[in-house]
Simulated assay, not measured.
Amino acid sequence: MKVVFIGDIVGNVGRDAVKRLLPWIKNKYQPHIIIANGENAAAGRGINAAITRDLFDWGVHGITMGNHTWDNREIFEFIDDEKRMIRPANLPPGTPGRGYTVIKAGSKELALVNLIGRTFLPPSECPFRAADDILEELRGRTKCILVDFHAEATSEKIAMGWHLDGRASLVVGTHTHVQTNDDRILPGGTAYLTDAGMTGPRDGVLGMDRDSVLHKFLTGLPTRFQVADTKWILSGLCVEIDDSTGRATKIQKIRVDEDSWIAE
């Protein structure tokens, strides 16, 4: 099985990049399943029903979220019913939505799990123990499992990679919007990348307008951030998984921007 994961989609610039590049991605990587992190898809904060429908219509099979899950209140109207979208599983009991699901595409099945870190982020339940419980439950369903760990600290993400080595097919970090260069397959067969990177404005600061961000750093004053209006960049990865074992056999970063991309 080939799976493409698209890093945090930021605003209309990120959505435009996804819409333009998905046909190219399908042609180049031949993925069976495409997953995207959508927690910043609506003006940089949260997601709404129309954007969710667009992503699925364009060819995304599953959407993960993060700490901005609830920023657009419209999500409360559909997250319980949309089985292809998940929010962090280690939020308190009774939180709307679901923390994991199984994505089907043709003859392929991929379990999709979303977790959120506790370092430098709002309080949540232990992601490591939540992962243990979920993977134990999924073990009888499928061996192919993707975990999106939405976390700030690189140490926490790396620790999760080792914690799930041999139990998940892929552990990929999101949230920091900067793609890391540590893609590897761990000894137990788990593909790992600390952060998939961002899909959005290339020349902002983590997707936001750089002048606003600079103003905040220089003055320390409250500043309203807007999604930058610049050329786009798309970041993510492609992983190949042995369906019979759930072990990853190859991981490859994807990083393309508006200046370097040539439609094929």
Rank of each mutant, 00 (worst) to 15 (best):
I254V: 08
L214V: 13
L55M: 14
V3D: 04
W24D: 11
L164V: 09
D257K: 03
L214K: 12
D257Q: 04
D229T: 08
R98W: 00
D16Q: 08
G140H: 03
L115G: 01
P127A: 03
I158G: 01
M85W: 08
N48V: 07
S124M: 06
G11C: 05
D132I: 04
I9S: 12
M198Q: 11
Q252N: 12
R255W: 00
N67W: 08
A49W: 06
K157F: 08
D183S: 14
S244F: 00
K157E: 11
G188L: 14
L237V: 07
G236V: 11
A105Y: 03
R247K: 15
L146A: 05
V178K: 09
V205Y: 07
V213Q: 08
I25G: 04
A43H: 12
C144D: 12
L234V: 06
I34M: 06
I9V: 15
N72D: 15
G97T: 07
T69L: 08
W162V: 05
N40P: 05
V113G: 07
D211G: 00
V60H: 04
A49L: 12
I158R: 11
R167M: 13
K108E: 15
E264V: 00
S244W: 02
G166I: 10
K143R: 15
R45A: 06
E82L: 00
Y192A: 04
I185W: 10
E240S: 14
K2N: 13
P222C: 11
L193D: 05
D242K: 03
Q226W: 02
I86N: 07
V18M: 09
L135I: 09
L186H: 09
D243M: 06
I134K: 06
T176C: 08
D211Y: 09
R129T: 14
G173C: 04
K231F: 07
I185C: 13
T64Y: 07
A89P: 11
K26V: 06
G166M: 10
F76V: 10
I134D: 03
R255E: 14
T64D: 10
R139Q: 14
Y29N: 05
E39T: 05
D57A: 15
Q226T: 03
I251F: 02
G66I: 04
A228W: 07
F225N: 02
D132P: 03
E39Y: 07
A50K: 15
V178D: 00
C238M: 14
L164H: 08
D148I: 01
W261S: 12
A36P: 09
V227K: 02
I262F: 04
H68Y: 10
A41C: 12
